[in-house]
Design a binder for these strands. Structure first.
Lengths: 136, 136
DNA sequence: CTGTATCCTCTAAGATACTG
DNA sequence: CAGTATCTTAGAGGATACAG
């Protein structure tokens, strides 16, 4: 059986989605690139916080996003959640050891970014300038 | 002037989008979490490749995505593009030094993922199991 | 206080077809 | 060979209202 290049590509696409898509590194990228994940983890870096405290500290996140971010972090075992059934309810969140180790990795990312994003920004400007002069 | 909590949150949202949204680390995350960026960079890690070679090596990427990924990498100065105006045209791509240094960071990410994503996967299963028994 | 549930919007990614 | 142009779609993120 002979496959066209296009068919091969589509099959590869399947492979990607079912195989590489499950690759650990890919999953990690998807986790930490979620909009609020790093900010929440950062907020929790020096201790546990209540939901309302997080809300204040990670200002800008809607309640829905804060909750869903926390849920996914909890699900991944990066954050632990402690509910105190008083009235009113009290909920505390804190990084697990795994969560802390991930935060270390995030700091490395941050380090590279701070060291190099200036260059990147300049490259972008140069590139865009080139495009403009060619277009106008 | 007094702001409601909601007004404060919305202002914070603005601040985020106009301020933190421009934070280097955030930009970096957005770059490398784009679906094909890491795969393309990986493919280019041991030398330059032509467009068609990349197409074969990064199987699964549509032509559009491959091109647009390459464009954004070029714009950021992570990849350089060399066009040879023969017939037919020949285009070669290779990582710049900055691109290589970013690849190093990506390898760190990959390392953490390989070391910890097992734990994460187990945490997920445990979490989901809990949810299920509660729901059923 | 801590959350769900609903609806809406916007954009990354993909399918497809065409050009120098 | 290398690339652009257009259309479509799935899902992340956000606004709002309600509930234990």
């Amino acid at each position: 059986m002979t496959l066209t290049a296009d068919q091969k590509r589509r099959r590869a696409q399947q492979d990607y989605n079912g195989g590489l898509g499950l690759c650990p590194a890919r999953q990690l990228l998807e986790t930490i690139s979620s909009k609020w994940v790093t900010l929440v983890m950062l907020a929790l870096s020096d201790g546990s916080l209540r939901h309302s405290e997080l809300r204040r500290q990670v200002a800008g996140a809607s309640q829905k996003m804060l909750t869903s971010t926390l849920r996914s972090l909890e699900r991944d075992g990066l954050v632990s959640r402690t509910v105190t059934s008083s009235v009113p309810v009290r909920t505390d969140y804190q990084l697990t050891p795994v969560g802390h180790s991930l935060l270390d990795v995030v700091y490395r990312l941050k380090g590279w970014a701070e060291d190099n994003m200036d260059d990147v920004a300049h490259a972008r400007m140069a590139y865009d300038r080139g495009r403009l002069t060619r277009v106008e």
